[in-house]
Amino acid sequence: MADASVVRAAPRQYAWIALMWIRAALAYPASFWTLTVAGAIITGLDFVGIAIMFTTIDTLGDFGLREIALLYGATGVALGLADMAIGSVEQIGHHVRTGSLDTMLTRPVPLLVQVCADRFALRRLGRISQSAVVLAWAAVPIDWTPARVAVTLMMLVAGLGIFFAFFVAFSCIQFWTADASELANAFTYGGNTMTQYPLTVFPREVVLSLTFLLPVAFVNWYPSLYVLGREDPFGMPSWFAFLSPAVALALLALAALAWRTGVRHYTSTGS
């Protein structure tokens, strides 16, 4: 089924659908721009909150504000990109309920492409650029070497992959319970919020589960420790910094499996 031509056509089909939604969004320019700016403000206030904390303290979990900004910026960019690219997959339950999934199944475009590109939200650029600004501010004092630049880029791509997998995998639950769209948020946005803080604020057991059970620590924590040139506070090996792409690939494979199982399980509401 997944022969080469289908896979090759997918990006172009995705782009067509996304472009259509961009044009649709721009039909209401006032709404589009307020939503874009509001998105940036909402996530920006998250960081303002952390910055306000630092008016009473100098370090949080032994990390300074600039170091936290690196964690915050990296996870924010990764989540923002994943959310823009495929965040609509959260609406799968809605498609099941309204029966629009049946319509999609008859179209000659892969279902995942259609569901992800549906209601493509260019306005998410607001939050992505806000995170990117924080990331740039964090990058100023870092002593850049080619290796650190490479690890930073790898961190962003792998982070995108990990959140991508979370979005798809946890949305698949809606093939069974169509109204549980918020469950995925606990892992996507929850994972984002969790990784905005240095993991040293959490107990050791939590950090272990975030490494081995639900590996969000690989979104930014281990690569950032390398970029910042810091010893791992929990005594994990330093090569964990380079493991993020492998973790992302493994999670993507699991997400693909969850998606296939979900679609196979799907039976139409029948009306």
């Binding site: 949080l60 979990g61 549980a180 769209s181 918020e182 606990a186 929850g190 919020t193 604020v201």
Partner: peptide, 23 residues
């Protein structure tokens, strides 16, 4: 289903913020 999922999500955020504030 939405309610149960929501309670779970609220709880996850509650745990995260609790540890951050404790720090």
């Amino acid at each position: 289903g939405a309610t149960v999922a929501g309670i779970f999500t609220n709880s996850v955020f509650g745990v995260i913020y609790s540890f951050a504030y404790l720090a």
